[in-house]
Write a protein that binds this DNA or RNA. Structure first.
Lengths: 153, 153
DNA sequence: TTTAATCAGTTTAGCACTAAACTGATTAAA
DNA sequence: TTTAATCAGTTTAGTGCTAAACTGATTAAA
């Protein structure tokens, strides 16, 4: 609590800079990823869906939404698109819909995932190993702190 | 060049983790910001437009697009919305359109910007000053590296 | 001077996402 | 047993974004 008031003007500016850098890096990275994925006619969000389904199948739409931190409505819409591309299939089971990759989906998964992961990882090769570890640690710390403090409100 | 091939399997996994954390932090942060801004009926991207115009006015749509790293088409659309809200006005000057805040826009700018900046900055108060500096340094380094290497392709 | 290049902004089609209201089925409480 | 709560997924309206094609005006080259 005190921290908020202790935060000096100078520190506020510093944090603001961090936020701008983070947002810019994220956007630049998404753009590059989309370019890289376009050779398989995929977008980054479709890729994310593919990774989650391929890794955790069979799973429900609800579970998928939770893993990706998006709404159920979003899942409904994007899965329909993947279904049209014949990459994912849905089976009504009990009262939920169970998602699985199709044969075509599995093949794409096997080909794209390793390459795209290599690509995404290469974004951080400008740092040495120590720096990479430190960056990960700091990001984790920020996230943990924010999760804790937002619960109590 | 060599770096790419030197990159060990282990390091790739580490970098992938960084990417996931970064994306998650970004999304969580955007969501919180949107919530915080909803009391003024603004979204984060409208806020960003307001900040840029308020800080650099008068400026053209082209210049605004460059500052925000978005397309001209996006600017056209979002400025129309801000115009409808009577926060921004456009004047055709020579062959460009010059953007300025309206009186209403100036008032909102004066009220919201300091509060929202304080809020955004508070996201990183889980780190001490040294850690904040280090995080900024690392983000910069990643960005610089990526800018350099993407030019040559 | 006609012709072509350039340049600011607009339009269109489509993907991604949310909040909020809504279905339809299951389960629990009265 | 009727009534209400819950729960998975869907729909709708609206914002935000891109790529790519397009206007209309200015400027340069032939």
């Amino acid at each position: 609590m005190l921290k908020i008031f202790n935060q000096s003007k100078h520190q506020e500016k510093l944090n603001l800079l961090i936020w701008f850098r983070l947002a810019r890096l994220y956007h630049a990275s998404i753009r590059l990823s989309n370019q890289h994925l376009s050779q398989w006619n995929l977008t980054t969000s479709q890729f994310d869906l593919l990774v989650q389904i391929g890794t955790h199948q069979p799973l429900s739409q609800q579970e998928l939404a939770e893993k990706l931190f998006v709404t159920k409505g979003n899942i409904t819409q994007s899965i329909v698109r993947l279904e049209k591309l014949e990459l994912v299939k849905r089976d009504q089971e009990w009262r939920t819909k169970i998602l699985r990759l199709t044969k075509k989906g599995e093949e794409l998964f096997g080909e794209v995932v390793p390459k795209q992961e290599l690509f995404q990882a290469s974004q951080f090769e400008g740092l040495n190993k120590e720096e990479q570890k430190e960056l990960l640690r700091l990001l984790k710390k920020v996230e943990v702190h924010n999760t804790k403090t937002s619960i109590k409100e």
